[in-house]
């Protein structure tokens, strides 16, 4: 058990810091955003599992040689209100940390999901009152506002893509098709699920810079995935122009009224530039063998801590 705990701890440290740092700086994800997204999820899950697993296995050392046996032993001791003679404060502390950390992460996930759902349904009922359905485009609505925005609102039963009047008048028909295809991809591929998971991870660990990095990286990857689907509908140049037009128009407002924040709060700075650059000077997609290797690594990342916990 001590060996397992040490290996899990090493894995947890690697997955908490150097690995995500390297991945967030790597260039290849823009050539295979879907694959990179899988890897990010594997790193986050395996990292959390290793971290909690390291504390659990260390804490369980006095209770037995394997996980299931030791857990049964802990339950028995809990009911009896006793401790094995070899258990010291360190072991009990590790078990408490494991329970608190796991609880913190899960509770935060549940809260983030509940809050997001509540906001979305409130937003949706407002949108239904304030916007008109776009003729010939089911599931698309137009909001009467001059700022050029487009976004999608994933819903339990019905998802909506919202465009503002400002956006519709800014873009031509082809560019509009690109934007709608982009937003549809977010909805079809259920990107909000991945995004909410990483958002909750970040909000659970606000002091942990890697969580912020991961959230931004994942945000960029889902945009690239949506761009890739839009490229099937229009050519790269049209999509790049649409992105550049909306982005530059969004900040070029002399009155600056509703868009003031864009100047002050550029947390995701560089996202738009990287998307446009990727469209204008495309690199070839990552080779199939490289993509498969990444998927194998992702799978292995999840498998190793699981096996360590269950088998040993």
């Amino acid at each position: 058990m001590f060996f397992t705990s040490a290996v899990l701890a090493c894995l947890a440290v690697l997955l908490a810091w150097p690995v995500p740092l390297l991945l967030s700086r790597a260039q290849w994800p823009s050539r295979a955003p879907g694959t990179a997204l899988v890897l990010w999820q594997a790193i986050a899950l395996a990292g959390g599992l290793s971290m909690i697993g390291a504390f659990v296995t260390y804490g369980l050392i006095p209770f037995g040689p394997n996980l299931l046996g030791a857990l049964a032993e802990v339950t028995r001791h809990l009911f009896d209100g006793t401790l094995p003679s070899s258990a010291d404060l360190g072991h009990i502390f590790a078990l408490c940390i494991a329970v608190l950390f796991a609880g913190h992460l899960l509770l935060n996930l549940a809260l983030t999901i509940a809050r997001t759902e509540r906001q979305r349904s409130r937003h949706l009922s407002l949108i239904n009152l304030l916007s008109a359905p776009m003729p010939d485009r089911p599931g698309t609505r137009v909001l009467d506002h001059p700022a050029p925005v487009a976004y999608c609102l994933p819903g339990m039963s019905r998802s909506v893509t919202v465009l503002s009047e400002g956006l519709v008048s800014l873009l031509d028909a082809e560019q509009l098709r690109a934007v709608i295809a982009h937003e549809r991809t977010h909805l079809r591929q259920q990107h909000h699920i991945v995004l909410v998971a990483f958002k909750s991870w970040h909000s659970a660990l606000p002091w942990f810079p890697i969580a912020n990095r991961a959230e931004n990286a994942v945000g960029l990857l889902v945009e690239m995935l949506a761009d890739d689907q839009a490229r099937r509908v229009v050519d790269d140049n049209t999509l790049a122009t649409a992105i550049a037009l909306v982005a530059s128009e969004g900040t070029d407002r002399p009155d600056g009224s509703t868009l003031e924040h864009l100047h002050s709060r550029d947390t995701s700075s560089g996202v738009v530039g990287r998307r446009v650059e990727r469209l204008l000077s495309p690199h070839p997609p990552l080779s199939a063998s490289a993509r498969i290797s990444v998927l194998v690594v992702s799978f292995a990342l999840l498998l190793v801590p699981t096996l360590l916990l269950v088998v040993i």
Partner: peptide, 8 residues
């Protein structure tokens, strides 16, 4: 919600 263009 995910916007077509985030902060710039």
């Amino acid at each position: 919600l995910a916007r077509f263009i985030g902060s710039v």
